[in-house]
């Protein structure tokens, strides 16, 4: 089976995010970069599928030179090869342009199934997987927490508010992974050594023949609104006293209960 997993390098969840003074982006200094956690679930599922059904896993990523670390991480986990799309016009592109570039790279490869994370935890757009599926003209199942593949038949479970849906579709398709799908493996030391020699093809927008005209843009980034300083409740030093004071404040001051 020809399996593709798309990955993005993002700031670690513990990173403090500071907006540049002119609002044009974030300060990148001091940030620890990691594989997007939702993409890790996708890579893990790709590897599990390969181990079961045979075939190979190709990692596709868009990003500057540092994104190669994330591709190598996925290769160290067990993927066979990579495609690194590195182009200043694409590295911070909007969702449509990103998906179009991924689609162009994937169209040149044999594929049966494509894994993406349900969203990247930097821009939180949650769009690329579905747009990619549409451009490739294949079905999608998003936010998948359980996946079974039998021949070309796909059975996937996804949550909605208050229920789980069991969805059936067929290969080829795009699956977007969410927490619960699996427990991503760690790269082994031999895996890390082997990953250094695995092939990674470099591409840019011209080579892919895709437009870099954005459909949308982040006009300005702004820090979150500052919260007013809070109060520590201590009118009465007992837990009961504090609870009574809180209930009263929630009712009369905040008016939220």
């Amino acid at each position: 089976m020809n399996i593709i997993a798309c990955v993005k390098q993002v700031p670690d969840t513990e990173a403090q995010i500071k907006v540049k003074a002119d609002g044009s982006g974030i300060e990148e200094g001091g940030i620890k970069w990691v594989m997007n956690p939702y993409d890790e679930f996708g890579v893990e599922e790709a590897l599990k599928l390969k181990e079961k059904a045979g075939g190979d896993v190709t990692i596709v990523s868009i990003g500057p030179a540092r994104a190669m670390e994330t591709i190598r991480t996925a290769l160290a986990m067990g993927a066979e090869k990579g495609v690194h799309i590195d182009d200043p016009a694409l590295n911070a592109a909007d969702a449509y342009t990103t998906a179009a570039a991924l689609a162009a790279a994937i169209k040149g490869l044999p594929y049966d199934i494509i894994f993406c994370g349900q969203r990247a935890i930097d821009d939180d757009s949650a769009q690329v997987g579905a747009i990619l599926a549409e451009i490739l003209g294949v079905p999608q199942v998003t936010f998948v927490t359980k996946l079974e593949i039998d021949g070309t038949k796909v059975k996937a479970v996804r949550p909605i508010e208050g229920a789980q849906l069991v969805i059936e579709t067929s290969l080829p398709c795009v699956i977007t992974a969410t927490k619960g799908l699996n427990e991503p493996r760690y790269a082994s030391l031999p895996g890390i050594m082997k990953a250094k020699k695995k092939p990674v093809e470099a591409k840019n927008a011209a080579a892919l023949g895709v437009s870099t005209d954005a459909k949308s843009k982040v006009a300005k980034m702004i820090p979150p609104p500052a919260r007013p300083p809070g109060k520590i409740l201590c009118a009465d030093d007992t837990p009961e006293g504090k609870a009574a004071e809180l209930a009263k404040l929630l009712r009369e001051e905040a008016k939220v209960i």
Partner: peptide, 15 residues
């Protein structure tokens, strides 16, 4: 919100 609310973005869609 972006970065789960660590910052916010003003988005303009041109298409």
């Amino acid at each position: 919100p972006m970065y789960a609310g660590k910052c916010f973005g003003e988005i303009v869609v041109s298409a």
